[in-house]
Amino acid sequence: TDLLKSVQYNYQSTVREIKNTISDLGEGSNVDVIAMGDDNTEFRIRASLGKSIPKADKVKLIENEVIHPLKEKYSALKILSLPDYEALVNSLSIDLGEDSSVADLQDILGKAVAIKAFEKGNQSKYIMDTTFSQLIAKKKVEEPLQKKFPQLNIKDNTTYDPTQGAAIKEQAFLVSLLVLALILLYIGIRFEFKFGVAAIIALVHDVIVVLCFVLFFDREVDIPTVVALLTIMGYSLNDTIVIFDRIRENKEILATEDNNLVVNNSINQSLSRTIVTSLTTLFVVTCLLFLGGPALENLSFALFVGVIVGTYSSIFVASPVLVIWENFLAKRDSRKVNKLRKSAPGKKTKKSEDKVVV
C-alpha cells in the first residue's frame, strides 16, 4: 500500500458519491468509505494506491504542486536545490527573489508542504519539506472533495509514504523482537526460562486473536489499535506473572505433589483475583466502547476483545504450555534413566557365579 488517507468531513452525501469523486487514483487503487454516523454527514475514507509512484510522476508532482503555484506569485523564483526523489521526506530549497513570510507561502501551498526559513533573518530563501503521498492526497483526494462538497470540513488527515511504511514496519518488527527478548530475559531471571517461553506464547496468541477480531469486523488497524495491542500485551503479561508467582510458591510448599495438581491449585487460588480484576477493567472498557464516540471506537473495541482474551490466555494458554513443557521434561528424564539402567552391563563376582553386580 503506497498511500493511506484518512479523512472525516461533514456534508450530506453518500458512500457512492464520495467514491466517484476520488476515483482517479490509478490502476489497482482502492477506496474504502465508512459512514461514522446515521445522518450521512460524517465519513472515514481510506484510499490506497495500487503501485509505487514512478520518478517521472514525482517530478511532475513537485513541479505542479509546489514550483508552479509559487512562480505565479514570485516570478523571480530560483531553485537552489532539488529534492531527493527516493528519500522519505523531500526537501526543496528556493529563493523567492523578494521578501515573504511562512504564512503567505503556506496559504499558497496548503498543509501538504512544511515550510521553514533557509537561514535566520532571511525572508526570501525557504526550505519546503513534503512527501509524495501528501501531494497525491492533496491533488487526488482533498481537492476533488473540496470542489464537489464546498462545505467540506477535514477533521483528521493521515498519509503514509510507501518507503516510510516499509521503514515503520521494519522498525516495529525489530522493536517487537527486542521487547519479547527482554520479557523472556526478565521472566527467565525472575522465574525460569520455561516460564518465559510460556508467557511469550500467550502474548503472541493474544495479539493474533485480537487482530483476527479486528479484521473480521472490518475495522481499521490504525494507531489507536496498535496502542490497544500494546496495552493488552502488558495487561496479559501482568496477569500471567501473578499466576506464575503462585505456581512457584506452591512448588516450594508442595514439592512432593504431582506437577499438574500444583499448577491446578495455583490457578484456583488466584482465580478470584483474576476474575474480579478483569471484570472491573472490562466494565470501564465497555463504557468506552459504547459511550466514547467514533474517535475511541477502534481503541475500545480492541481493548474489549483483548481484556477477555488476555484473561483466559493467562489461565488456559500460558499455564497449560508450562505444564506440557514440564511433563515433557519429566518424561524425557525418565526415559534417560531407564535407558541407562538397561544399558548397564551385569558382572559376575569371583565369590559366586549366582551373584551379579550391576
Rank of each mutant, 00 (worst) to 15 (best):
G26I: 03
D95Q: 12
G97D: 09
G50F: 04
E27A: 12
E27G: 00
R46H: 04
I45L: 11
S48E: 11
R44E: 15
L77R: 12
L80C: 11
S81P: 05
M36R: 04
E27W: 00
S93T: 11
L96E: 03
N30F: 10
G28K: 08
A76W: 02
P83N: 08
D84S: 13
D95Y: 08
N30K: 09
N30P: 00
S52E: 14
K58P: 06
I45C: 00
K51R: 13
S93R: 04
R44I: 06
K55L: 12
R46G: 00
D57H: 10
G50Q: 03
V59R: 04
G28W: 02
E63M: 06
K78W: 07
S48P: 00
K60Y: 03
D24A: 13
G26T: 10
P54G: 10
L92M: 09
H68A: 15
E42A: 01
V33T: 02
L96H: 05
V89E: 11
I67F: 04
P69R: 09
N30S: 12
E27P: 01
K51M: 08
A35R: 10
K58C: 04
I67G: 08
K55G: 00
P83D: 08
I62P: 04
D57W: 02
I79L: 15
L25V: 10
A47P: 05
V59P: 03
L70T: 07
N64M: 04
R46V: 14
L88G: 01
T21H: 07
K71M: 15
P83A: 08
I53W: 02
A35D: 00
S93F: 11
G50S: 06
D38E: 07
A87N: 12
N30M: 06
D38A: 07
S29R: 03
A76S: 15
G28V: 01
D57L: 07
V89Q: 11
S91P: 00
V66T: 09
F43R: 08
D95W: 08
L77T: 13
P83T: 14
S81K: 11
L70Y: 05
I45P: 03
I45N: 05
I79G: 09
D84F: 04
V89C: 01
Y74G: 12
P54H: 03
G37F: 01
I79T: 13
A87K: 07
A76R: 13
D84K: 13
D38T: 07
I22G: 10
G97T: 09
N40T: 05
E42W: 00
K51E: 15
R44H: 04
G37K: 05
A76C: 02
L49W: 12
K73H: 13
S91C: 00
E86V: 03
S29T: 05
G37E: 13
A87Q: 10
L70D: 07
R44P: 00
D38G: 01
F43A: 09
A56Q: 11
I79V: 15
K55Q: 13
A47M: 06
S29P: 04
I62F: 06
D95N: 14
N90H: 13
K55P: 00
